[in-house]
Amino acid sequence: MMTAERPTVVQKTAARTKVLQRQGAAVALVLMVAVSWLVFPRFGSIDNMRDLALQGAFLVVIALGMTFVIITGGIDLSVGSVYALGGVLAAWGSQYGFLVALVLPLVVCGLIGLVNGLLIARTNMAPFIVTLASLLFARGLLLVITDEGATTYQIPADSAFVELGRGTVSGFGYPIFIAAVLCVVGGAVLNRTGFGQNVFATGGAEQSAILMGVPIARTKVLVYTMSGTLAGLAGALTAAYLQSGVTVIGVGLELDAIAVVVIGGTLLTGGMGTVLGTVIGVGLIKVIQNVINQIGTLDSNYQSVVSGVFLLIVVVLQRILRR
């Protein structure tokens, strides 16, 4: 085993950074939950907890893909639109059965992600621009297939697909379990597979990674494909839950996803991040939202104000701790 060495200043700083970045969000979450529990009697109720978890589940699925993208040093602005498109496709596809309703959004959204990845990896265009273009593309496609949003495809209440969104185990919705399984798998992929190591290397030092033989292009293509597919899945689950393909959802959702990933301690510049952090980030945002709803007298837009302040604090901390 390692000999116990006197930690250097750098190591101490690194350790402190880690604690504050990863556990910082966790500590904040625990505090928020504890205070809310004491102040708002309804907050701790099992119903409210189920609600919170379900609300968070959809965002977790999107943010999971975003976590991978951001660790490679990229960004995916298309997920909000792709999420909405996924929902509409699922609702439309549900008339042809469970399989079509589930697979169609995954394939189409995965393809959008694949194109994002290919453009970014092969042409070296900025992820910001490429995914901004596909944000517009996906939203446009959605409007075309819904007659400019006039048609809302309904999912028959008795279809098996609805069960995917509305089914429960002791009151906890299926999407919560789906999100949990995806996170466990995602965490294992990130930390325990060669692909995961490539993701870190790509975002940590791209030029070095190239010289170390890391397949940069393939890694990028994969993370954007993943991000698109997961956004499509989140959309499909939402549609199943709402029993219809709502056309107006997901506007600005990409920014929420980026925010929770960064709040969770993933470096926006890439090379460092965790799935657990992202889950905690989602938890924080959702608790804040929940509490503001509980207060009732407060305008619900305060949720954005608080989230914004939170994000700013995290980014400033990252900056300071990285020097």
Partner: peptide, 21 residues
């Protein structure tokens, strides 16, 4: 290379074994 071409944010062992863990 003259300048170290490794990934500073990844652990020492991850750098050493990257691609053949």
């Amino acid at each position: 290379y003259q300048e170290v071409n490794l990934v500073p944010l990844m652990s020492v062992s991850a750098n050493l074994f990257l691609g053949r863990e």
